[in-house]
Amino acid sequence: MEIKLTVNNEKRKVNVKPHTRLIDLLREDLGLTGTKEGCGKGECGACTVLMDNKVVTSCLVLAVQADGSEILTIEGLETKDKLHPIQQAFIDTGAVQCGYCIPGMIISSKKLIDQNLNPSDDQIKRALSGNICRCTGYVKIVDAVKQAAHEIKSGVK
């Protein structure tokens, strides 16, 4: 069955099977392998993307259900040759260890920062509560989100 959706601001038309998951569509059909599959059961958050501006685990959404929606993946964040401030902040603060959870972490962070440019530690922890880092680097991840929010806020002024 054919579905149409917008992925990272590009209109795409794809043929999918009823059981194709959004993550398979992104990684296999569209070649967007920045989105990672961790547990495949919605518990780790590695496959988090924005779907119509809501955070979703793309392993728990059927591709068909994304018909007509707007998807943002990690690949959609950078502009030309410049990383998104959140990506840069994750590098600057040393928040990335093995890196596998980071695309999901950054998408969840973006959702938070879009709504709140002054997030508290608790708000950051709550926003990232669906994303697991097994290198146990949460302190630096929280630092990264704060720094990114600060930079985006200064940039906006």
């Binding site: 795409r12 038309k13 043929n15 099977k17 569509l25 569209l30 070649g31 967007l32 040759d81």
Partner: peptide, 18 residues
């Protein structure tokens, strides 16, 4: 950056038929 449009759809990789 690798633009997603550089990658052609690979619709065969999504499993069995409808």
């Amino acid at each position: 950056k690798k633009q997603s449009k550089d990658v052609k759809n690979r619709p065969t990789s999504s499993g069995r038929d409808s």
